[in-house]
Amino acid sequence: MDHFPSNWGRPRNDAIDQYATYPIHSRPKDSFAEGVQRTQQPIVTGTSVLAFKFKDGIMMAADTLASYGSLARFKDVQRLHAVGNHTVVGAGGDMSDFQYIQNLLEQLIVDEISAQDHHTLSPAEIHEYLSQVMYARRSKIDPLWNSLLVGGFKDGEKYQPSNPRRPLPLTVYLRFLAYVDLLGTTYSASTLATGYGAHIAQPLLRKAVESREEILTEEQALKIMEACMKVLFYRDARSLNKYQVATITKDGVKISDSKTLDTSWSFAENIRGYGAQTQ
């Protein structure tokens, strides 16, 4: 227990002081000590985002918590952001940087509408834009501290500009799902997860989804997503039992109201060191 009120609620630097073991006089320095500075570490953070492909499109989920270090600071923050009618961007990492990204995307959409050429940005184009922004910022050593998932239903796998000669696949897939982070690293797969979810939910998602992308219905997809969010809530100390699900299909983007997870803690009674024990 830290007995110094001035330290309460301050985020620890998990990279250095993982278990708050440093004596107070030699604590890693306060994030605000030098006034305005570049993002050197995330402050108010969101945890995992999960997404995967299913028969009719993409499903993505994130809980609604924005943490301040280990403090559950904001409990109703939307981390899924619709961009136009075909794309959703989900964010983990620093929430103020995410708000800035939302702003950039909003401007981008306004510019596209202003052109009045009846062209709307595809998910692949939005992902390319974001990856260039993220890579440019990391190259200035002034990163946007986020892991982003971009999911959409429009130009997807048929987009192969690098090779005009390669014949398009007969079945034209329209789904798009890709990742980009603060380093500008990008990749695509049929199941994706950021943050803690990459370790805990990704194996579950791969087992449940891989090779079934063309079969899974929306209801089945929702079940899988709920199971994964539940495991994350049980295991990730920076998570919340309140989350939102986005589905992107040919009908456009749908982001649900926040859902609550049913969890059971009665087992804790029987575990030594969890509940009230007499000995």
Partner: peptide, 16 residues
């Protein structure tokens, strides 16, 4: 030994 050094942003990673 006693003063932890502020870990600065590393713009690189290794992707195997």
């Amino acid at each position: 030994m006693t003063q932890p050094v502020q870990q600065s942003f590393n713009p690189y990673t290794e992707n195997g």
